[in-house]
Design a protein around this nucleic acid. Sequence first.
RNA 1: GCGCCCGUAGCUCAGUUGGAUAGAGCAGCGGACUUCUAAUCCGCAGGUCGCAGGUUCGAAUCCUGCCGGGCGCGCCA
Length: 562
Amino acid sequence: MKDYLRSTIRAVLDDYDAVPADFDIELEKPAREEHGDLATNTAMRLASALKNNPRAIAEELSERLRDAVDPGRVRAVEVAGPGFINFRFASDHLFDSLADVLDAGEAYGRTDLGNGQSALVEYVSANPTGPLTVGHGRNAVLGDTVANLLDWAGYRVDREYYFNDAGRQMRVLAQSVRARYEEIAADVDMKTIDLGDGETAEVPVSFPEDGYLGEYIRDVGQALFDEHGDALLDSDRLDPFQAKAEEIIFADIEATLERINVHIETFFNEKQLYQDDRVERTVNALKEAGVTYEKDDALWFKTTDFGKDKDTVLIKSSGEPTYRTPDMAYHVDKFERGYDVIIDVLGADHIATYPDVLSALDVLGYDSEKVEVILYQFVTLVRGGEPVKMSTRRANYVTLDDLIDEVGADVTRFFFLMRSADTHLNFDLELAKEASDKNPVFYLQYAHARVCSIVDKAEEVGFTFDDEPDLALLTHEDETTLIKELLRFPTIIEQAAEARAPHFIPNYLREVASAFSQFYGSCRIIGEDRDLATARMHLARATQTVIHNGLTVLGIDAPREM
RNA sequence: GCGCCCGUAGCUCAGUUGGAUAGAGCAGCGGACUUCUAAUCCGCAGGUCGCAGGUUCGAAUCCUGCCGGGCGCGCCA
C-alpha cells in the first residue's frame, strides 16, 4: 500500500518542475485514528521549493491525488493540520490484505528487505571461565533476536560465538582448577584470602592471585580426580586442567543457552587465529602501516592518532598479545568472509575498547563503518524494590541459569527484549514471576491461548475453515482496528530489523493483543450466523498467526492453552 | 578530568530518518463475569519531556552549554 501511494504521489509530483528529482516521499501511520491510515508531509516539505504555503500546496496536491488514486484501494484523501495529506484505505483493501495474512500463515511477516544479503551476528562471546551471568543473558537474547529479525527480513544470517582461550584468563582458570584438584587429591596447606567487606575464603596455598572462587571450579577438580586419581599431581602441565575446565564449563554454557532458545552455529576460538599466524600477520600489517611503536619491551598501537587520549598495548612485554590483538585478526577474518552486514553485541563496559579494533580495521584497509555495534547497558535484578547485590570477585552472583530457574525461559527472554538495548534494565523478579495481568509476557501468551481456544470452540460447534470466508462482513469498529493492527506486522519486522531494535516487537505485540481483547469483548463468534462467524474465526486465526509469528521472532513460546 | 549511554506521568518505560492534542503498562479511583479463557475489558485521573539557549514553518527528537545518574578510561577480558 505504501509503495502504491508513493508511486502515485510521485506521478503527481512529476508535473511540478520545482520538485527535486530525488525528493523522498515520506509516508507514515499517523498517531491518531482520525488522521487516517497513512499520512504524508510532502506538502510541508515542499513549501520552500514551491514557494507557497504548505496548506495551499496540500490542497492542490490532494485535489490531483483524489483523481489519481484507485478508489478500490483509497477511499479518501484529506488535508489536515499544518499541511498533512491523509489517506484512508478502502475497506476492500483491508479485506484483501487480511486474506493475504491467512494465505501466508507462518511465513506472514517475512519480507525480502535484505534481498539475500549476508549478515554475521556475533554475540554472547563469553569466555569459558564460569557460568553465564545475567548480563550475558541480555547479550545472548539480544543477539539471537536481532539475528532472527534479520532472518525474517530476508538476510542470510550466521550466528557466531567468539571466545578467548589462549590468554592469561584461561591460565588463571587452569591454575584455580589445579589448586582445587590438589586440595582434593592431596593433603595441601590452605590459606585464607580476604575478599573485602570482612568476607574471606579458604583456598590452597597454590591458588592463584585473582583466581576463580566459584564452586564449579571444585567440580572440575573433582571430575579430574574421578578420572585420573592423583596422577596429575606429578606434572607441572596446566593444559589438562584448562582443557577439562573448558569442556565442563562450555557444556554448561551451551546447556544454558539451549534453555533460553539460543542456538549458535559457530564457535570461533582465538586459538585458531594463532594456528595459521593470522594474529601475527595482522600485527605485521599494522607495523608496516607505521601505526605502532615499541616501548618498555611492549608493542603499542598509536590510538592517539585516532582520537583516543592514550595509546594501547598490542603485545605485552611478556610477548603475549593483549586480548584486543586477536580480536582485530578476528574482525579481519569477518571481512575476509565477505559479509554485507557485520554486527557485534557488546556490553557497555566495552565502550572504550572496541574503537581500537575499528581503528585497526581502517588502517588495514577495511571499512570499519560496516561494523555495527549493539551496545547494551547493564542489568540490575530487583527484588522487593531493592537491587540484588552481586560480586563477581566472590563468585556471589545470580547466574543466568538461576534466573531461568526462578522466572522461566520465556519471561527471561521477554524481559530482556522489551526495553531498548541502551537503557539500563531493571529486571523486577517479583513482577517476572507473577502470572497475572501485570506481567506483559503473560498478557501476550494469554491472548494467544485465548485465540486458540476460540477457534477450537468454533470448530467444535460446527463452524469450519473449509467454508470460504466473506471477510467483507468484518465491519465492526473493533474488527477494523484489529485488522489494521495485524497488517502492520511486516513493516514492524522490517523496522525492527533495520534499527536492530528487538524491543519494537514486544511493544507492537501488546497492541495486537490489546486490539484482539477488545474485539473479543465486543464481537462473538458462536451464536452469530454462519457467514459472520466464519469471517470472524478467520480474523481470529489471522491474529493467532501474528502473535505466534511475533513470539517466534522473539524466541518465545506461543502456548495453545494456559 | 576525558569518552560513551541515560534523564519523558507516582513507578517501569515507548516515542528511530524532526510533524498534528507527548503515549503504554503498572500503581490509584470508578464500572463490567447466568455469554467462545475476568491471566480480560471499559471509563476517570495523572506531564515545566532534567535546566538554559540555538537551528526552523514545526523540537521529547538535531546543535551548544550546564545539572543529575550509569559505564568505562590496565602490559585484565
